[in-house]
Amino acid sequence: MKKLFLALLVAATIHVNAQEKVANKATTSSQKFRFALNGGFSRLLAKTSTSLSPQNKAYVDQLKSGVNFGVDAGYFVAKDWGLGLKFNQFRSSHTGLLYDANNFAVSASTDLVNTFFGPSFSTKYDSQNNKHMLMLSAAIGYMHYWSHNGFIKTTGGTVGSALDFGYDYRVTKNFALGAQLSFVGGALSKLTQTNGSMSVTSELEDNKKESMARLDISIGARFNF
């Protein structure tokens, strides 16, 4: 009798756990919207021009490292793929000395901002217990360049793209924490420099295009509905 009771108890426990897993999977699979906030470290990947002096090269290299923040909003049309919008911005700044052709040093301060915005496509894989999720996203859109150095403002724009590899850990049904590795790319063929009331636009040759390629490492919060 005791063995029969234990067998029934084990069977009931298995049944309840199975029902909970089914209910949990049904709940998460019914969530269509995903909203993600990201922030972290970035590094520009373009090589610094060899024509610069060692001092000026060091100044430019300081601007290659910065911070990023972004927002991703997606709607999953099917269980494992969806469409959305991506916004991402990179910022860096540096204050130091720049040297002219006569090796005369002047104090300089530069602010740099690269902004990407565009539609995205995502695919995801959920673990069996719905605690872990892997995501791959690709986006193509508009990339804007802005820098300010003293009285000179430089701007430009081009077609850009982004590729994201992400991992989410589900804390609750609607909230998760995540980490993401991203590659963002684009190359400027035209730059506009503004100094007060005067503005000059320059066309860049193919071998002198301004690369905005960078690597982002970020963490953030995810909301699922």
Rank of each mutant, 00 (worst) to 15 (best):
V77K: 08
K79N: 15
T50R: 11
Q19C: 02
A176K: 05
R214Q: 11
G39Y: 08
L163N: 03
N195I: 00
K131R: 14
L204R: 03
K190E: 12
E20R: 07
F33C: 04
V16C: 06
F41H: 15
Y125C: 06
Y167H: 07
R91F: 11
F104K: 12
T13V: 15
D80H: 14
D168V: 05
T13A: 15
V10D: 06
K190A: 01
F87Q: 04
V77Q: 08
S49H: 09
L6A: 13
K86P: 00
L45P: 01
W81Y: 15
S218T: 13
V200P: 00
L44N: 14
N102P: 02
D164F: 03
E20L: 10
N56S: 04
K79A: 13
S218D: 05
S109K: 13
G96P: 01
N103I: 03
I217D: 05
Q128S: 15
D61W: 05
Q62P: 00
L215E: 01
D206G: 09
T155C: 03
A162G: 02
F87P: 03
G178M: 11
S29W: 06
H94D: 06
A179F: 13
K79P: 10
F104P: 00
S218F: 05
K153T: 15
V77S: 10
H148Q: 15
S65V: 08
S65I: 10
G185R: 02
Q62V: 00
A138W: 11
N129F: 11
V22S: 07
D111N: 13
K25V: 02
T201R: 01
L177H: 06
Q193G: 03
I14Y: 10
I14E: 09
A78S: 11
A18Q: 10
T123S: 06
S202E: 12
D72Y: 11
S197E: 02
A162T: 10
